[in-house]
Deep mutational scan, measured.
Amino acid sequence: TFEVERIVRKKIVHGNTSYLVKWKNYSSKDNTWETEDDIRTKYGDLVDDFEK
């Protein structure tokens, strides 16, 4: 199971928000862009903290 360590960046393309996710126990080269809906479902607190 993958676990988010932190959110690195945010991008908005054509009105759709995605977050660059750093995965726990993986290197930064393994970071992936994930949709806001996918990340918010399980890691809403991390998204809220990133947006502060």
Rank of each mutant, 00 (worst) to 15 (best):
K29D: 12
Y19N: 00
D48L: 10
T17A: 10
N16D: 08
K29S: 11
I12S: 08
V13T: 10
W23S: 00
V13F: 08
K11Y: 06
E51L: 06
L20V: 01
V8F: 04
L46T: 04
T41D: 12
W23H: 02
T35Q: 09
E3M: 08
F2Q: 13
I12H: 04
T41A: 13
N31W: 13
Y26V: 13
E36C: 05
D38R: 11
Y26R: 15
Y19L: 01
K22T: 04
V8L: 14
T1D: 12
K22R: 05
S18Q: 14
K11A: 09
V47K: 02
V21N: 00
K10I: 06
E51P: 03
V47G: 01
S28A: 11
S28I: 08
T35V: 08
T41P: 11
V21W: 01
V21Y: 00
D38W: 15
F50I: 02
L46P: 02
N25H: 11
R6D: 06
D49S: 11
F2R: 15
K22M: 06
I12Q: 07
D45E: 12
V8G: 00
K29Q: 12
F50C: 03
Y26C: 15
R9N: 12
R6I: 09
L46Q: 04
K52H: 09
V21K: 01
I12C: 12
E34V: 15
D48F: 08
K10E: 00
Y26T: 14
E51T: 05
D45N: 13
G44V: 06
R9W: 09
D30H: 15
G15Y: 04
F50Y: 10
R9G: 14
T17D: 00
K42Q: 11
I39V: 10
V8M: 09
E5C: 08
V47W: 08
T32W: 01
D49Y: 11
Y19F: 07
R40E: 03
E3F: 06
N16S: 12
K10C: 08
T1I: 13
E5H: 03
T1M: 13
I7G: 00
E36I: 06
D38N: 12
D30A: 14
K42F: 12
N31P: 07
T41I: 13
D30V: 09
T17N: 05
T1R: 14
T41Q: 13
E3Y: 07
I12P: 01
Y26G: 11
E34G: 02
I7S: 00
W33Y: 02
N31I: 08
E5N: 01
L20D: 00
E3L: 07
I12D: 05
K24N: 04
F2H: 14
R6C: 15
N25R: 06
S28D: 14
L20Q: 05
K11M: 10
N16A: 12
